[in-house]
């Protein structure tokens, strides 16, 4: 089935782009990469949610 082969190709190319390129280079987990432990992460989020107020 020709269409089957085309679909497998699309699936693999897509998964490659998503996981090997986008996830690695463009979508680092912000809190995981910028902080070393959960305490720091909580402190960062806490600071954000208590000091921010909406601005124009």
């Amino acid at each position: 089935m020709k269409v089957g082969r085309k679909l497998w190709a699309i699936i693999f190319i897509k998964l490659f782009i998503m996981f090997a390129i986008l996830k690695v280079f463009f979508f680092p987990d912000y809190l995981q990469t910028n902080f070393t432990n959960d305490e720091e992460r909580a402190a960062h989020v806490f600071k954000n949610i208590t000091r921010l107020s909406q601005n124009k």
Partner: peptide
């Protein structure tokens, strides 16, 4: 889900 972790980290944490 990628976007949650990168763009919406305060939300994701909470």
């Amino acid at each position: 889900e990628f976007q949650f972790g990168t763009n919406w980290s305060n939300y994701s944490w909470m």
